[in-house]
Every structure is written in C-alpha cells, then in structure tokens.
Design a protein around this nucleic acid. Structure first.
Length: 439
RNA sequence: CGGAGUGUGGCUCAGUCUGGUAGAGCACCGCGUUCGGGACGCGGGGGUCGCAGGUUCGAAUCCUGCCACUCCGACCA
C-alpha cells in the first residue's frame, strides 16, 4: 500500500476521551473512530489488524475440528423465551421491534440459535460430536462502556458450540477448545492464562476464563506464577487423542479471578514464592453446561439404545475486537504500538525521506515491488511530509520493520533497517536489507 | 443505575465567575525557503459556541429543560 493513496488519519495529539494506552493509541494511529458510547467504526488500519486476529482464531478453530458457519445478528425473542433467558438477560440485551410489531433482539450470544439449528437437523448420536462456530458482531448494552474496544457495546466475538452424547465426550470437546485457545493466543504474542471462573448467565459447572495479565486489566487475579512458563501445545497436537494430559499442567496449578478466589486454597496449594497477584484482561472464556439449553429446547438425539437424550453442550468465546486492545496493552511504548509480526497491519514500512529525488524514488519503488512479491505487505510512505513526522508516524502505528531510504545514505549505497520492537537500527546496502527481512 | 464532570473550527484547549463585534496552538489551502527524528516566513479558508426555551437593549457567558460524551462506583458471556 502506498501511504499517499491510503486512508490513515494519525493524530499528533491525544484525544481527550481516551484513558488507557490501547484506546489512546488506536485513536492516534488512525485505527478507530468512536460513533457512539461503546460503538466504533474500524478505520482501514484497525480493520486490517482485526482481520488478522480473526484469521488466526479461524485457523486454530479449524485445526481443532470446529466448523465455521454464520448466524445473523438479529434473533427472534421467542427463541429466547424457550430457554427462559429473554427475561433473565435484562437491560443488557438490546430489544428491537420490527414493522410487524414482532419482538427481536440484537444477539449478545448465540446458545439459543445454535441449539435451534442443531435440533432442526440432528437426529442420531452417530452425527456427534459436532462443534460449530461463527465470528459475528454482538451487542451488549453495557451500562457503562469504557476503555475503547476493551469494553464496547458492539463487539466482534468468535463463539463456538460443542454437541456431544455424553458428559465425558463433552469434556473431550471442552479440552479441544482449551488447547486451541492456548495456541491461538500464543500466536498473537499473548500470554493468556486459563483461570477458574464463574459461569455467569451462560450457566454450567465447568468454566475457564483466559486472562492476559496487564496492569489495566479489569479484574484482579491470583495465580501460581509457574503457569507463566508452561509450554504451549504445538501445531502437531492430536486433537483426536486424549488431551487430558495436555491440559493437566494448566489446570493443576492455582489460578483464579477475584470472583471465585479461595484464599485458603490458594495458600494451601501454592508456595509463597510462586504466588502472583495481578490484574488481567479476559480475552476468552470456555463453558461446559451439559443439557442446560438442550433439555428445555429439546435438542435431542437417539442414542445407541434407541432412547432420545438431550445433547451435552459447551460454548467457547473469544473477544476478537477486544484482543486488538489487549495486544496493544501488552505491547507498546512511549512512541506507540509495537505489533507482534503475526497481527501487524503491514509487515514493513518503507520511508522515502526525499520524495521527488529520482534515485530515492527508484530505490523505494524497487523495494516496494520486491517486498510485495515476497508477501511482506509493505506500506510505502511516499508522502511529502517531513522526515521527523514520518518517523513518528511509523513508530506510532508500530509496524515490525522500517526500511528507511534517503539521499544521504543512498549516496553511500546504504539504507537503514529498523526493528520496531527493539529499536535496533542497521545501515546496510538495500539488497542486503531486503534479504534480511522475513517473508 | 447512584455520584461527579465536560460539550467553543478537524484535534488539544482558553474565554463563562464579572453579559458588550468568537480566540490560540496544531491541522488545512496558496507562494517561497527548507528537508536524515513531528521546519520557517508571508498570505488565506473554516465555528448557528451540543439542542430548545427563557431573562436582557444585548447571551458562548445568567436561568430552565433536554441530548450527547467522559470519569468514580455498582453491574458485567
């Protein structure tokens, strides 16, 4: 992408409404525009990051055997009356009436709808297990939205739903999602720790919140710090096999949010030197709730013995839009965002220090073509802004690499290659710089 | 939902107490000089001061109502 043709409204000054780093930086980097309290437009740069995160989530869900579909944002109120949640959910649910006076709602989650879809087609235990997911916009009418995309009212969520014949099989499905979550957060450069959690309105006994440790997190957490060093399951993990052993290290150390924290147990199960009290951002949550929905909504299949049984279900959410903020909270400095390579909106920024200079323009064009061909997704700053401003903008938007090309260096056959994360700067010939970049 | 604030040009804000022709910096447009870490000079464009009533000769400023947004708390798959 050539910056001269792009839409990247970076802000020199910090917007007054933004309180935390990720919100400030998203507004300043031209990623986000607030349209109402807790409702945002994703500008081109922000949307690129959102899509990268979404894609990582999708790949890991697919790897774990889940199947993608897409459910609508609007749902019929009657569907929620079947589960009894229409009245229970309260003011957080946005209720809508159409021209025929039919009651609708903007979905805050999709247990009812996926159960309705499943029961419409599934008849036999032979069709199990199934795990269906979608990545769709949700709306929860928070009383007090805040912190930008960290706590918006409209947000993008991946939600998966598992269907099994028995609780044991359901537990296996739960474990698959557990492992997939460990992997997908790791791929985004995040250290997300699974913690015991309350299941809240979703219901059920078994639940984990996946929490990224950050000072600006909304909840206090208590954990065994050895969890921070556990290895993440590899790409070759056999999701068809028994995963109990894979997740055991994660569930055998103490980790809990303040809501369910048991101080006595904490002291009994952890060594004082290993205790870590911190704050965290919830980026995902897993639930196993058995027949809580399948029973009242009659999602039944015939078992081997011919009897109809309610399927055992779980649901698994990832806050895709919240992750954009969480990643920034975990990775930024005074100058701006520092994107992990895997979610960076562009792989490398090329800075033309003297647009209009024939040699410099040619070198930049050459680098742009070569890096595009190499799949590096370069962003070429070919504007006539002054160098200082270009450097500041590049640091702000946080691309992993910066390739700086100017007349002075070029006269000596040199360009500058800068790694955003470390600040390391190297002067070297253009050809070598292109070789040094991954991709 | 309880409490506290804020709405003035695209952004950050001053002006409101004490009513009297709407301001600054940045950004933007033109010309020129510049150009390796957010340049400088000269000239210029842009605001029904959140909305609606009221008081007054006169309202950004005082009064009333409403709306939006922010912060603290409660709430929060």
């Amino acid at each position: 992408m050539r910056l001269s043709r792009y839409f990247l409204p970076v802000l020199k000054e910090t917007p007054a409404e933004a309180q935390i780093a990720s919100h400030r930086l998203m507004l300043r980097a031209g990623m986000l525009r607030q349209e109402a309290a807790g409702i945002y437009a994703w500008l081109p740069l922000g949307y690129r990051v959102l899509r990268k995160i979404e894609q990582i989530v999708r790949e890991e869900m697919d790897r774990a055997g889940a199947i993608e579909l897409l459910m609508p944002t609007l749902q019929l109120a009657d569907l929620w009356r079947e589960s009894g949640r229409y009245d229970d959910y309260g003011a957080e649910m946005l209720r809508i009436t159409d021209r025929h006076e039919r009651e609708l709602l903007f979905g805050p989650t999709n247990e009812e709808m996926i159960t309705e879809i499943f029961r419409a087609y599934a008849r036999s235990y032979r069709e199990l297990p199934k795990n269906l997911y979608h990545i769709q916009w949700k709306f929860r009418d928070e009383q007090r939205p805040r912190f930008g995309v960290m706590r918006g009212r409209e947000f993008l969520m991946k939600d998966a739903y598992s269907f099994d014949l028995t609780a044991e099989a359901g537990r296996a499905s739960y474990n698959q999602m557990f492992v997939a979550y460990l992997r997908l957060f790791e791929r985004m450069g995040l250290k997300a720790i699974p913690m015991q959690a309350e299941s809240g309105p979703i219901g059920g006994e078994l639940s984990h919140e996946f929490i990224v440790l950050a000072e600006t997190g909304e909840s206090a957490v208590f954990l065994d710090r050895r969890l921070l060093d556990l290895p993440i399951p590899g790409e070759a993990t056999d999701y068809g096999g028994d995963l109990e052993g894979v997740i055991a290290p994660w569930t055998s150390h103490y980790a809990a949010t303040e809501d369910v924290h048991d101080a006595a147990r904490y002291e009994r199960e952890t060594d004082p030197a290993d205790r870590l009290t911190a704050r965290g951002i919830e980026v995902g949550q897993t639930f196993f709730f058995g027949d809580k929905y399948s029973l009242p909504m009659k999602a039944l299949v015939q078992g081997p013995d011919g009897a109809a049984v309610a399927v055992q279900m779980g649901s698994y959410g990832v806050g895709v839009s919240r992750l954009v903020g969480a990643i920034i909270e975990a990775s930024h400095d005074e100058a701006g965002i520092i994107w992990p390579d895997s979610v960076a909106p562009f792989g490398v920024g090329i800075v033309n220090l003297r647009p209009g200079d024939e040699a410099v323009d040619a070198a930049c064009e050459g680098a742009y073509v070569a890096l595009t061909a190499a799949g590096m997704e370069p962003l070429l700053d070919d504007t006539d802004e002054r160098p200082g401003g270009k450097f500041a903008s590049m640091d702000l938007i946080g691309l992993p690499w910066q390739l700086i090309i100017g007349p002075r260096g070029l006269a000596e056959g040199q360009v500058e290659l800068k790694r955003r994360a470390t600040g390391e700067r190297r002067r070297l010939p253009l050809e070598e710089a292109l070789q040094a970049l991954p991709g």
